[in-house]
């Protein structure tokens, strides 16, 4: 079966600065289960890109394999996409990014795709501070292969079939922090209010932006006893702060209260305004971020919001000192040294 979204367009849909409606940011019709958290994240991506006035073709969307990794077909239909192999999206994103530094790279993955089969590649993409947004749609299970526990399932969490997970969960945010990630955030697919500004901030970040989004699997892991169910997350969510994302060179119209708030100015001049900060947490302090994550975990809570942010890091292009021009745009005539040079090389080998 193939699914194509109906062509009907609502005549009064609002347009963004580029003259596009949200329709220009949508993809084909989703084939995921009704109510799947992944679709909400896809919708948040559409909304974030629409609001940020991103040219859709300037985004390259990539994924691995899984229900979550299918979603690039369902958002940003005018963007090129690459549904790679299971767990290997980071390497394809790395190569793509090396070829053209000017596109915006948006990778989506699942908890199986990232925390199990793809752990090696994930870890190294973080370590290289690859300039991309990496979203894990985390449902604590393998949706596409019918609900097996994943490595992010919490110890003691109960599957729909009733078995209890006996293993420690891998905390992807904690791991990313440990590896030196420069942007770490956590959110919940059911919290658009928080998710959209976080996606915006992640896409504006220069370097590796990691976004772990709890995304309930309604079919296999939304039962009582599961720690990745809608009910559990709603009851245990604990935010680092509420936030607004202010794009670069935009006049700040809201006046924010002093004291309890924090402003984070990003690489490109955009601003993250954080208010209602959780106590003892500072987004620029890795230690306090690690502590906040650990504490909420101990208390069985789900810490959401911006966990850590640092914009001073060099991305992989900075480290490799590559040309300011996208490598894929340099003409072959310039890349090929020509016959005279080759004669010189020959002479050295005679």
């Amino acid at each position: 079966m193939s699914f194509v979204r109906p062509q009907f367009r609502h005549p009064h849909l609002p347009k963004n600065e580029l003259g596009y409606t949200t329709r220009e940011y949508e993809g084909s019709l989703s084939t995921l289960c009704a109510g799947c958290g992944h679709d909400s994240i896809g919708a948040a991506i559409v909304q974030a890109c629409f609001e940020m006035n991103i040219e859709p073709h300037q985004v390259a969307k990539l994924s691995g394999i899984g229900c979550s990794s299918k979603t690039p077909a369902y958002f940003l239909g005018n963007s090129h996409g690459f549904n790679t192999v299971h767990g290997r999206m980071p390497s394809v994103a790395t190569g793509a990014n090396m070829a053209n530094r000017d596109l915006i790279y948006l990778g989506v993955s699942g908890d199986g795709d990232t925390a199990s089969i793809g752990m090696g590649q994930f870890v190294h993409a973080v370590r290289r501070n690859l300039n991309m947004t990496y979203i894990v749609m985390n449902n604590g299970c393998y949706g596409l292969t019918k609900g097996q526990d994943s490595a992010t399932a919490d110890m003691g969490s109960k599957s729909k079939a009733g078995s209890v997970n006996p293993f420690e969960a891998i905390d992807l945010c904690g791991l990313a922090l440990e590896l030196g990630a420069s942007f770490v955030a956590q959110s919940f697919s059911g919290d658009k209010q928080q998710l959209i500004p976080l996606i915006k901030a992640a896409m504006h970040h220069h370097g590796f932006a990691f976004l772990n989004v709890i995304s309930p699997c309604v079919t296999f892991n939304n039962n009582v006893g599961s720690t990745k169910s809608y009910d559990y997350v709603r009851q245990h969510v604990q935010a680092t702060a509420t936030m607004d994302f202010v794009p670069p060179a935009t006049e700040i119209t809201t006046s924010y209260a002093e004291g309890a708030d924090a402003n984070v100015t990003m690489h490109d001049g955009s601003l993250l305004h954080l208010h209602k900060l959780a106590q003892g947490w500072d987004p620029s302090d890795r230690m306090s971020a690690i502590e906040a994550l650990q504490r909420s975990r101990m208390e069985g809570k789900v810490l959401t919001g911006l966990v850590y942010y640092d914009d001073k890091g060099k991305d992989l292009h900075d480290v490799l000192n590559t040309s300011a021009r996208p490598l894929n745009s340099i003409p072959m005539t310039e890349l090929c040294p020509g016959s005279a040079k080759l004669r010189e090389i020959n002479a050295g080998l005679q």
Partner: peptide, 24 residues
């Protein structure tokens, strides 16, 4: 540099990077 060399974490990643680059 008009080139980028990435020493990958393994051969799976190396070929993945090549695929990403040529796709792009």
């Amino acid at each position: 540099s008009n080139y980028a060399i990435v020493q990958a974490e393994d051969e799976l990643a190396a070929i993945g990077m090549v695929i990403g680059a040529t796709w792009n």
